[in-house]
Amino acid sequence: MWESVLEVLENVCNDGNVTEQRGIALGLIQRMESFEFIFILHLMIKVLGLTNDLPNVLQQKDQNIVNAMGLIVNVKELMQDLRENGWGTFLEEVRSFCVAMSVSVPNMEDSIPVRGCSRRGGQLVTYYHLYHAEIFIAVIDLLTTEMNNIFSETSTKLLRCIACLNPRNSFSRFDHGTLVRLAQIYSNDFSTSDHLILKEKLRIYIHDVRRNSDISNCHDLPSLAVKMVQFDKHFTFPLVYRLIELALILPVATTTVERAFLAMNIIKTYLRNKIGDEWLNNMMVCYIEQEMFAKIDEDIILQCFQNMQNRRIQFPPCSN
């Protein structure tokens, strides 16, 4: 692939009719045959090789939460291992590729100006510092920080707890202690007495539902909730059903928050940086629930606004 791209660029550079295209091709050839380009390219391949499966797995509709969380932990550990122990092997791979492609390899102990500074300033760093600290370590730390922000310890713990409610394989992931911790996370939804009796209620619940083939054959939480209502189990095990409800509304709550932040970024621009909180809140509600507001008759809104107080200009009369 590398040689094919260079060959195409050479053809454009030698046979191109447009001077601008020939100049771009020449610049790309010089860029591709530099150690920095090859280093960054190999780093991208290495990092994407470690993380590529993660988004694909998380996007699967029927993905097991426990397996997904395990994959996240594995990716984090592999990234940390690459950061601490992978530099030597990685650099040797880049050097071998450069030698095979006749690309000059700089001496890591030589000095070069700091990025963004000229040689006149006298601020120098070694090639080792540039490629190891400013590129290799910086990229890995950036990705690790992003993953920690998205998959924090609290959110990972919460998802592991919710996974214990999954009815797949006859409730194979069910764990009393983990579900008790889930109730502790939602402490406002459970009273002190609820916490005291929850563990025993969970024991009775799992014994009961495993004997019911209609419930034990469920494959996800929504179908489990439907079956529990169908067989009146939500009255028999109200605390367990409350846990299931909390697990089901979590994706909805998360999506609602994301939509709210998106709406805020769209509405509160630099031209509206002094907008008040109440006005911003009202505008965000209108934006987020625009499908519902689209069904409201505009004449009713105009009439309501007109009746709030006397105005210099009267709105057009309502259409009949």
Score class of each variant (00 low, 15 high):
residue 230 Q to N: 03
residue 233 K to S: 07
residue 167 P to M: 10
residue 204 I to C: 04
residue 283 M to R: 10
residue 250 L to C: 07
residue 283 M to Q: 13
residue 185 I to F: 13
residue 231 F to K: 09
residue 205 Y to C: 13
residue 198 L to Y: 08
residue 163 A to P: 01
residue 201 K to W: 04
residue 240 V to I: 11
residue 156 T to W: 07
residue 259 R to G: 04
residue 277 D to N: 09
residue 224 L to E: 08
residue 289 E to A: 09
residue 287 Y to M: 05
residue 263 A to F: 01
residue 254 T to G: 00
residue 270 Y to R: 15
residue 177 G to A: 14
residue 215 I to W: 01
residue 288 I to N: 05
residue 286 C to R: 05
residue 171 F to D: 08
residue 250 L to P: 05
residue 185 I to Y: 12
residue 191 S to C: 07
residue 161 C to T: 09
residue 216 S to P: 05
residue 246 L to E: 05
residue 171 F to I: 08
residue 169 N to K: 13
residue 229 V to M: 13
residue 172 S to P: 01
residue 211 R to L: 10
residue 196 L to E: 14
residue 152 S to V: 04
residue 264 M to T: 03
residue 162 I to Q: 03
residue 282 N to I: 06
residue 259 R to E: 07
residue 226 V to I: 09
residue 258 E to C: 13
residue 278 E to C: 09
residue 204 I to A: 05
residue 189 D to G: 00
residue 289 E to Y: 09
residue 155 S to V: 15
residue 187 S to L: 10
residue 283 M to K: 10
residue 176 H to A: 12
residue 272 R to C: 05
residue 213 S to I: 12
residue 210 R to I: 10
residue 222 P to A: 03
residue 256 T to L: 11
residue 214 D to H: 02
residue 285 V to F: 05
residue 230 Q to Y: 01
residue 203 R to G: 06
residue 230 Q to C: 06
residue 161 C to M: 14
residue 164 C to S: 13
residue 231 F to I: 02
residue 216 S to W: 06
residue 170 S to C: 15
residue 265 N to Y: 05
residue 218 C to K: 02
residue 233 K to F: 11
residue 196 L to V: 14
residue 248 L to R: 14
residue 235 F to W: 00
residue 161 C to N: 11
residue 162 I to Y: 02
residue 289 E to C: 10
residue 263 A to I: 09
residue 156 T to E: 09
residue 171 F to G: 04
residue 180 V to W: 13
residue 181 R to G: 00
residue 200 E to P: 02
residue 220 D to T: 13
residue 243 L to M: 13
residue 163 A to V: 14
residue 163 A to T: 13
residue 181 R to I: 10
residue 234 H to K: 04
residue 181 R to Y: 11
residue 276 G to L: 11
residue 203 R to P: 00
residue 219 H to Y: 11
residue 207 H to K: 08
residue 155 S to E: 11
residue 156 T to C: 15
residue 178 T to P: 08
residue 177 G to N: 14
residue 207 H to Y: 12
residue 263 A to C: 10
residue 174 F to T: 00
residue 215 I to K: 03
residue 262 L to A: 14
residue 218 C to G: 01
residue 270 Y to H: 12
residue 187 S to T: 02
residue 155 S to T: 13
residue 287 Y to A: 03
residue 150 I to Q: 14
residue 191 S to H: 08
residue 189 D to I: 01
residue 197 I to V: 15
residue 255 T to E: 01
residue 245 E to R: 06
residue 261 F to W: 15
residue 259 R to C: 05
residue 221 L to V: 15
residue 247 A to N: 02
residue 197 I to G: 11
residue 186 Y to K: 12
residue 237 F to G: 01
residue 154 T to D: 11
residue 198 L to I: 05
residue 280 L to G: 04
residue 258 E to P: 03
residue 259 R to H: 06
residue 231 F to V: 03
residue 242 R to E: 00
residue 225 A to Y: 08
residue 223 S to D: 11
residue 234 H to A: 04
residue 289 E to G: 04
residue 255 T to G: 07
residue 208 D to G: 00
residue 198 L to F: 02
residue 195 H to R: 00
residue 202 L to A: 09
residue 200 E to R: 04
residue 187 S to D: 10
residue 188 N to F: 02
residue 152 S to A: 08
residue 184 Q to S: 05
residue 180 V to N: 11
residue 202 L to T: 06
residue 241 Y to N: 10
residue 233 K to Q: 14
residue 156 T to P: 03
residue 248 L to F: 02
residue 277 D to Y: 13
residue 260 A to K: 03
residue 255 T to H: 03
residue 154 T to E: 09
residue 183 A to Y: 01
residue 217 N to Q: 06
residue 206 I to M: 03
